[in-house]
């Protein structure tokens, strides 16, 4: 059932997203082709200007696609579940969980696809302009050689991004589900709910981080200075500092991700409760 819900959700939104991605690729390719023509004609200043405009157009396109993605995610939930289409969705023999998850998973799929197309366009421009990707690869290899788990960091970064994205989307869903219970005007109610959720999220996140910062400083005072003093050589001291920095970075990023996941789960639980127990379609 979830698979079917996702299928229809992706089908309903495919047109607008595929068109957006096609536009991004078209802008990139057009910039590259025009630059190549200018290059053949031997007009270097024109070539550089064209390339600059192509990059600028791509940046604008990426921003526009991000905005479109956000709007579509909001509208799909608002219209498809809380609007007239909700009369169909809520009478299908499926659970509220699957309805919410289908929207969430589809939203994440489109966000990831948007990122992939953006990276593809950047790589295209990078390759054509002769930007040396080897230097990036060399840096990563050196970092790996120094004992840094580059693959692990990249995987962790992607996991953090997906969790934060899911949390943001669930926050939006929760705002919309709450919105209809706050005021008669659903949009105003949703905006008020979203502002409240954002403020609560910031307070909780910064409180925990501040608490962690105090703990880390205490740890630093008690253990790190001693470790540096005992390290001996300069390189050994440096290693202690790097390990310490890595530790702080990891503990902060883990804390932020865990909080993001917890807030996402809380928003999901509220949305689920309201749609399952307090549904009142206008």
């Amino acid at each position: 059932m979830l698979k079917n819900l996702i299928k229809y959700e992706l089908r309903s939104t495919a047109r607008i997203f595929l068109f957006s991605y096609l536009a991004m690729v078209a802008i990139t390719v057009a910039g590259i082709v025009i630059r190549a023509i200018a290059n053949t004609a031997g007009r270097n200043p024109v070539e550089h200007t064209v390339l600059s405009f192509a990059v600028l157009a791509l940046v604008i396109a990426v921003i526009v696609v991000c905005v479109i993605t956000l709007i579509v995610i909001i509208l799909r939930f608002g219209r498809n579940l809380l609007g007239d289409e909700g009369y169909l969705l809520f009478t299908l023999p499926t659970t509220t969980d699957k309805l919410i998850l289908s929207k969430l998973i589809s939203g994440i799929i489109w966000c990831v696809a948007g990122c992939a197309v953006t990276v593809l366009c950047i790589l295209l421009i990078g390759t054509v302009t002769g930007t040396n990707l080897d230097s990036l690869m060399n840096t990563l290899a050196a970092a790996t050689g120094a004992g840094m788990n580059v693959g692990g960091y990249i995987a962790w970064f992607i996991a953090m991004a997906v969790i934060s994205l899911a949390s943001l989307i669930l926050g939006l869903y929760c705002s919309m589900a709450l919105g209809q219970h706050i005021t008669k005007n659903r949009v105003t109610g949703s905006c008020i709910a979203f502002i409240i959720i954002c403020i609560a999220t910031q307070i909780i996140t910064y409180s925990v981080l501040a608490l962690m910062h105090i703990t880390q400083r205490a740890e630093y005072g008690a253990k790190q200075v001693e470790a540096v003093m005992n390290a001996g050589s300069e390189s050994a001291q440096l290693k202690v500092w790097v390990d310490f920095a890595n530790g702080v970075f990891n503990s902060y990023s883990i804390a932020v991700t865990v909080m993001s996941a917890a807030l996402g789960i809380a928003c999901y639980a509220i949305t689920r409760y309201l749609l399952k127990r307090k549904l009142n379609l206008a």
Binding site: D84, G86, Y87, L88, T91
Partner: peptide, 14 residues
């Protein structure tokens, strides 16, 4: 929902 076939007073398809 498995038992009921519902026709609402509005258009409910995308």
């Amino acid at each position: 929902k498995r038992l009921v076939s519902y026709l609402p007073d509005r258009t409910y398809f995308d």
